[in-house]
Design a protein around this nucleic acid. Structure first.
Lengths: 228, 228
DNA sequence: GGACCCATCTTAACAGTGTTCAGATGCGTG
DNA sequence: CACGCATCTGAACACTGTTAAGATGGGTCC
């Protein structure tokens, strides 16, 4: 164990771990930078060599945690035996979204609350992108009309996100908790069949944009400029 | 103006006003009890005669603000010329929900975040109840099957809440902002048509419960016991 | 091997926070 | 008019995020 060294080794990661644990124990805001530092066995100001502020730590934690959500969703969607049914893959990804929020409501609340404040690091894979990709497969499979496809990811994302946040914020309760799967499935299925039966003319749907997509584009532009 | 009196008159209300203003200016957490007190022209400890803690102030603000949302929704749903079409009434209520979150994202975030922490005051009319009532009208009008009606309010609520929170948290951006109406309409319409075409057998949907409904029931029980 | 460098961490201090408590103030009621 | 009590003040507490100046020691170059 190299834990007792003066140089910690991975203080950044350790602080993120401690913060995540504290969020789980006392809620999204019921902890302090000093507590996290103390838990790692380090002075409060040591944290400032890895994060420019407490909020920066929160944002970094949000990024880490959202990426984990994206992974879970991708895994669920790619689970074997689903290749035949694109719709079930999407539903599985959405189930993972809600389960994640229900397993760790405090962490989820922190993550969603801080997500849009981070102009730096990219979340990969981003939950929004997983839904987007699954919808592409659905469209390829002919289960979603070309007219309904544009911006459909925002409709689905909103539906799942609504279930997840209502549960995480304690505004809605399910009895028993496993019922979350059913509730999620119902909402997502409803949105999907609703979208396929849409009667609106093409070009109707507004240009919705995910913040993380915008930032990714901005970073790419910046990179291009730098290399040019 | 009796404002300069030693006894303030309505310090409780004034503190709520100041807090709401501060939330708007600096975000859900970027202000202090002391600032709110100072803005009202009162010492910090004066607040403790009206709220047992800072969090209690936040919760009270959340209740006040959610009730306002409920009113806006009810008004939108009851707007003249809609009586013929129950579906349009519901959509109008949902539009009001999202507009409210978009007009005042910081206040909305605070309200949703604190909503479930308040065991005391009732929110009236509660957004959930407005959706519930509109769905009843929809079912009466025969536009929603009896099989799909149970727990449908949670599906609709989740969809709207998802749009509202994605926008308020800055995870999703709409361009131009007025497009929020379209996006909302699309999601809600999709859920509604999806629900009407549901093929699941009756009794499938889990018992979802809104936290405020539970509390209302608990208060009623308590009252009954007290009078007995 | 020794000398240096610099990221890493510590100690000390700052202003500002939520909260409590003993006491001052003045409105409404008898 | 005097009393009682809700209302508000002032001072104090431990704790917070943040900064500055200095100690520490791992890695690199001669």
């Amino acid at each position: 164990m190299g834990k007792r060294r003066y140089h910690h080794g991975d203080l950044r990661g350790a602080l993120l771990d401690a913060a995540e644990e504290l969020v789980r124990e006392r809620g999204p805001a019921g902890w302090s930078l000093r507590e996290a530092s103390a838990r790692v066995g380090v002075s409060p100001s040591a944290a400032y060599h890895h994060f420019s502020s407490r909020d920066a730590l929160v944002r970094a934690l949000s990024v880490r945690v959202l990426a984990r959500l994206g992974e879970r969703m991708a895994e669920a969607a790619a689970a074997p035996g689903r290749d035949d049914d694109a719709r079930r893959s999407l539903v599985a990804a959405c189930r993972a979204y809600v389960r994640w929020a229900l397993d760790d409501p405090a962490v989820a609340r922190l993550a969603f609350g801080a997500a849009a404040r981070d102009p730096g690091t990219a979340v990969h894979p981003h939950p929004h992108d997983v839904i987007d990709a699954e919808l592409d497969r659905l469209a390829e499979a002919g289960e979603l009309s070309a007219a309904a496809r544009p911006a459909a990811e925002f409709a689905v994302w909103a539906a799942v996100h609504g279930v997840a946040t209502l549960l995480a914020d304690g505004l809605m309760t399910l009895d028993p908790p496993q019922a979350a799967d059913l509730q999620t499935e119902r909402v997502v299925q409803a949105v999907l069949t609703g979208l396929t039966r849409e009667t609106a003319p093409p070009g109707t749907w507004p240009a919705a944009r995910s913040t993380h997509t915008e930032r990714r584009a901005a970073r790419a532009r910046e990179r291009g400029r730098g290399e040019a």
